[in-house]
Design a binder for these strands. Sequence first.
DNA 1: CTGTTAGCGCTTTCAC
DNA 2: GTGAAAGCGCTAACAG
Lengths: 368, 368
Amino acid sequence: MSTEPRASRPATIADVAARAGVSLATVSRVLNDNPRVDRALAAKVRQAADDLRYSASPLARSLVLGKTNTVAVVVPDLENPTFLGVLRGLSRAAGRDGYHILVADSAESVTEEIALAGTTRRRCDGLVLCAPRMPEDDLRRLLGELQPVVLVNREPGSTDPTGTPVVAADYRAALAELLELLHADGHRELVYLAGASRSASNTRRLAAVRDFGADHPDARVVTLPCGVNFADGYAAAATVADRIAGHVGAGDPEGGQPTAVLAFNDLVAMGLLSGLGERGIRVPADVSVTGFDDIPFARYLSPPLTTAAVPVDELGVQAWHRMADRLGGRTTPGHAVFRPSVERRASTGPAPVATSAGRTSRRRRVAR
Amino acid sequence: MSTEPRASRPATIADVAARAGVSLATVSRVLNDNPRVDRALAAKVRQAADDLRYSASPLARSLVLGKTNTVAVVVPDLENPTFLGVLRGLSRAAGRDGYHILVADSAESVTEEIALAGTTRRRCDGLVLCAPRMPEDDLRRLLGELQPVVLVNREPGSTDPTGTPVVAADYRAALAELLELLHADGHRELVYLAGASRSASNTRRLAAVRDFGADHPDARVVTLPCGVNFADGYAAAATVADRIAGHVGAGDPEGGQPTAVLAFNDLVAMGLLSGLGERGIRVPADVSVTGFDDIPFARYLSPPLTTAAVPVDELGVQAWHRMADRLGGRTTPGHAVFRPSVERRASTGPAPVATSAGRTSRRRRVAR
DNA sequence: CTGTTAGCGCTTTCAC
DNA sequence: GTGAAAGCGCTAACAG
């Protein structure tokens, strides 16, 4: 018969109403700061709520309000510094606006990614999708079903009718700048250590490589499949060292002796630096190396790494702003593209003369 | 009048019921695989659900079922490799069991942390708390209010009546092992580069330092405040170099010339290595260095870093298992403590003879 | 200003 | 086997 809540059950609005001797509606009003409620009554309600350590069930509120104050974030791998940075920036920015983050790690599986996008989206108000490798068809379908969506580092595809906002770093422009920097330093035989071949950011870097080749007939960039981690870069050091020594890869008649290597990212560059060091190859005296991302200690490596600083946290913050706009019914201007700033440090320098001569004469020793 | 859903509104169970010509209850039964429903009817319902691309609102289900299939994870900083690993392991393990993760980054603020623990917990079924620096009083209160809770790398406090499960790495034992390893290599003057002074994992390391001092009267460990990041280690290199050179810190009459430095973690060790390298101090010839955590590329540094491998992902997985047990009403056996395995690599070696002699004679040059 | 009432979308007794 | 109806805890008309 009592209206007191049992100790174990969290207090409900009805408990508060009973204790304050008012109706549910009044309690709701007071707790939602509806101004047109009597001061005295309001005080009484608040007192009752305090006594009962009451706070409204977010679940019930969400159901009736039709909003959860939560957004889902799907990333391929939390270990990846890019997505981690995005998540961090996003989570803090959203937190400041009273929003929560439901995070899902697809473990690099596209199938999982698609499924997670759906299941997480349903319990949230929106979806921030980092899906660099999702096939375009699947992406299009998801964009149709899961709005509001904000895309990070991924284009919606040629014909996207949804006007989905995109927040991205301009990997292409940044790699182009790195290439130009090396070219200006006299490098003519370059190697690009590619990341996951189907990822969006790798594709954009490859476009920069293509452009560069077209713009500079005097130079050549050989693309080598590599990977995205330290270990991948470390492993690539063997191949790179061979090429520097003049032992060109058998299946690659185009390669000369490279004087510069552009790593997919800083992790790869670090691995490369490490493997090169073990082989007595000096950086930048024998070969210049660039990274990508500017992770916190890139500047502290030996030598400090020339790289392109991708503002990952900012990407996350902006992704949130786009999402907040959509949630607020505002329609946001299209894509936000951030141009990474190239940090020129000591891992790059003038092309070594010897190799430069070799290049000029197009001389090439063939592996045997 | 029509029972067809408008295109823009997600289909509800009522829409499905109407289309299949059955009651809501039947639809619910079918979709929840309740066996006692007519095969033919069930098929019809499934068909209707498919046609309407229906799937039940997780929100409404959560409200009525009293569970959200979501757990909250509060971390001080996503950038920290430890918490990141925990989150990753946890998120994947929980995902396999159909659970979602609500993640909150407290930006290292204890106040935020307390608030976030409460607000996130309310929209979830449980809370995984990584709060290495939360004052014990606050923690105790939260443990009382927010159950079920699982603690990561943090003790609940001396008198915890809640029986909260703890998943932790044994930082103390691991640092002790590192200290013994160095002692066995002849090191007698050591430096410990401390992390955040009030954090639980730093406290445990300090305990190991204390034990070591007591067990080895012939050795001495000087603790220097440092930090947890690459930059902190880099900055500490100056002080360490001074001490190695015999310029002991003025306020620290106890310090001799150190032959080994134990960094708080790998990031700090990397920074230290970098700073030491710039000063021409060789590792391990002049000084041995150890890290902590065994982050992915610790083995690739030059020299490869001797460190203690903390199984962070496993911590996350185990945290989830504990949580899953509690959610399933099972009561889990107490604390799960994981002993990091010490990885002996090339950054440590025998104590250099010169300094060893200096130590023996207690000779000390004083800074001026 | 305050209370009554009707849902939000779903599950689950309880009858039939 | 199936349906009607009562809620889960809350908010928002709608009356007074």
